[in-house]
Design a binder for these strands. Structure first.
Length: 286
DNA sequence: CCCCAGGTCAATT
DNA sequence: AATTGACATGGG
């Protein structure tokens, strides 16, 4: 992978393990939209970014090397060697087929607060409506960024918010969970910055102190915000897929979680994303 | 009018 | 410790 600046763009050349559609469409994030055949646009860490695919390169539009180094390189997990991981995961012949439909997936390193709130909202919900609710949250409580975008409101900015204040975002029963997350994070009772330094089990317990954060939501935050690729979030899609692909090892939810770790090892979280993408693309059939 | 959607919580067994 | 229904909202 070769990276350089050209005018106001950052070029990522030879990006064979990086497909924008697969990365943004594998269910880990909710604020990127395709604006054109090859262009995606979205917001992360208070920055608006457009990206364009051009043959074997990806172009980050209207940005600079400083933002690339401080934000986007980490956000897109560009220092990780996905070829090596895919090769290792492919020793499982069943998983190998799932990988082949999402070879360009990368696990984003997203903002912990945004990820926490986003996956609270994801509970018993569908993806279009999750995106809708998050969009409304940003429009109502975030800062305008340019003409069409808003930042994700931080916890301190939401301090003191009530369920009633949140009614315009139509989050339903999840509103009270968002309020609890705001209270615990804005007060400092839970310090997401310090959480970075906790081991995975302690961090998971810490996150689950928040009402509305159970095991699955906690695992998603661990994977998509803290880069803990050793966790294996199990949602309905993964549950159904695992039961179809590994029926003898997946008779209940608890078994599926341990099966993920045992079958796929230290990077089972990445395997989970290939499976999720594959399941949604092909209806779970290998 | 029914069912379901990246689950979680609390009551009940 | 395992099981079960409620929880808001919108779309099919």
């Amino acid at each position: 992978m070769k990276i350089y600046q050209e005018n106001n763009n950052i070029i990522i050349e030879n990006s064979k393990d990086f497909c924008l559609k697969q990365t943004f469409d594998c269910g880990q994030c909710f604020r990127w939209e395709q604006t054109d055949d090859s262009v995606f646009e979205g917001v992360a860490f208070g920055r608006v970014l457009s990206l364009k695919t051009e043959e074997d390169r990806i172009v980050l539009l209207n940005t600079n090397m400083e933002d690339y180094e401080n934000i986007w390189a980490k956000y897109f997990d560009l220092s990780r060697d996905y070829s090596k991981i895919k090769q290792s995961l492919s020793s499982d012949t069943i998983l190998k087929k799932a990988i082949s439909s999402g070879e360009g997936i990368r696990i984003l390193r997203q903002d912990p607060w945004e990820t926490l709130v986003s996956f609270i909202i994801s509970a018993s919900n569908n993806i279009p409506r999750i995106k809708k609710i998050i969009g409304l949250l940003c429009e109502h409580f975030g800062k305008p960024l340019g003409s069409r975008h808003f930042s994700f409101p931080d916890a301190k900015g939401l301090w003191g918010i009530t369920e009633e204040d949140l009614s315009p975002i139509r989050a339903g029963f999840r509103a009270k969970y968002i309020v609890d997350a705001v209270n615990k994070v804005a007060s400092g009772e839970i310090d997401l910055h310090k959480c970075e330094f906790l081991d995975t089990d302690s961090l998971k317990k810490e996150l689950m102190k928040i009402n509305g954060v159970g095991e699955k939501v906690a695992d998603c935050i661990l994977l998509f915000a803290f880069g803990r690729t050793e966790v294996f979030p199990v949602d309905v899609w993964i549950k159904n897929t695992m039961q179809k692909l590994y029926p003898e090892k997946c008779s209940n939810l608890k078994q599926i979680r341990t099966a993920g770790r045992e079958l796929f090892g230290e990077h089972c979280g990445i395997a989970q994303q290939y499976l999720f993408y594959h399941a949604r693309e092909k209806g779970g059939n290998i």
